[in-house]
């Protein structure tokens, strides 16, 4: 299967007061054609910065990225901003959270469609609007012709989120990045949006990178999952591993445990907070909160183990716990 997006050994650092602070460390990730990939992690762990920097949306004055990036199989230079601008909206479309603020309130919905299309293709206004109305209709927006003439502040959040999806699909991008598109809408709309993304994925074979901190949605939607903690992709596995509870990394395990199960038992809480960017120490960033941590975890970097069918875990303790069993 064709890989739409692939990064190898990707690092991202923030320049601050003459120091470089590591935000994302040696990330390996790929999204294949027709696949929905979930990226899960706590707020501030670097999930949004990951896609922003990959698409050239991180200010080069502040952010330094290195590593290998391939888009649609072609190697991309991370500093080639013109090429990345061209790819955005065309090869890779983005759906953001908080559509109320993402749309420019002074421009009609129509203008948003037109300017996006004009940035990439030479369509006439009629063609653009025809495409827009048909897409909007397919996303269950009633009276799309009327909606096109409206301003964003006249639409509801759920409606704008659907318009955003329509806008993202206009140029038939092979890859869609959805950055927590369901955080600012209510539960019914959440379900609708998840269902719509599934439909898009099925009908158009669009690859989707779905970023969220909601494990339930990821479990519903994704084929494969990456778990991110403090800038590290600590574990990745097919979604079946999640359903069968066959995850290994202590953080993933803890995440699973802190999910409401609708029983009377108290919900276990994952104590503490992720480390701040500034006081990151040697070794595994999860060690201070990890129940399985040993001294070695605090001094050595985590080792990457491939432990089965597309299942990768980044933890020193994997070997300790599993080596004897395998022998």
């Amino acid at each position: 299967m064709k890989q739409l997006l692939r990064i190898d050994n990707y690092d991202l650092s923030l320049r601050m007061n003459g120091e470089n602070i590591r935000v994302i460390s040696s990330a390996d990730l790929f999204v294949s054609e027709g696949e929905i990939v979930g990226l899960i992690g706590e707020s501030g762990c670097g999930k949004s910065m990951l896609w922003k920097s990959l698409l050239g949306l991180a200010d080069p004055q502040k952010w330094i990225c290195s590593g290998e990036l391939r888009l649609m199989g072609n190697p991309m230079d991370l500093s080639d901003r013109a090429a990345l601008t061209e790819a955005r909206g065309n090869q890779v479309s983005v759906i953001l959270q908080d559509p109320m603020n993402a749309f420019d309130q002074l421009f009609t919905i129509e203008r948003h469609f037109i300017e996006t299309a004009r940035a990439h293709v030479q369509w006439s206004k009629g063609e653009i609007l025809k495409k827009a109305t048909s897409l909007m209709r397919r996303l269950y927006i009633r009276e799309p012709e009327k909606v096109l003439k409206m301003y964003p502040f006249q639409c509801s959040g759920g409606m704008l989120q659907r318009i955003m999806i329509a806008l993202a699909l206009m140029l038939d991008p092979p890859l869609l990045i959805a950055d927590e598109p369901t955080t600012s809408v209510d539960v019914t709309v959440q379900r609708e949006i998840v269902a719509m993304l599934k439909e898009v994925n099925r009908d158009r074979n669009t690859g989707i990178l779905y970023i969220s901190h909601d494990l339930k949605i990821i479990e519903d939607l994704a084929d494969r999952v990456y778990v991110m903690y403090a800038g590290y992709l600590v574990e990745s596995f097919p979604v079946s591993a999640l359903q069968e509870r066959k995850v290994f990394h202590p953080y993933t395990v803890k995440l699973l445990q802190s999910r409401p199960s609708y029983t009377k038992a108290y919900l276990p809480v994952l104590e503490g907070n992720p480390p701040s960017l500034l006081d990151r120490q040697a070794g595994c960033p999860f060690a201070p909160r990890c129940p399985k941590a040993v001294d070695a975890c605090r001094s050595y970097d985590m080792h990457v183990y491939e432990i089965g069918n597309q299942h990768i875990v980044r933890c020193l303790r994997w070997e300790d716990e599993n080596e004897p069993a395998q022998n």
């Binding site: 949306l57 955005r88 479309s93 940035a119």
Partner: peptide, 20 residues
């Protein structure tokens, strides 16, 4: 956010600056 979104849609910097 609207600037980020405009960039994410592939609009050119100049266009974002002069219009949005």
């Amino acid at each position: 956010m609207f600037v980020l979104y405009a960039r994410a849609r592939g609009l050119h910097e100049k266009r974002i600056f002069w219009s949005h």
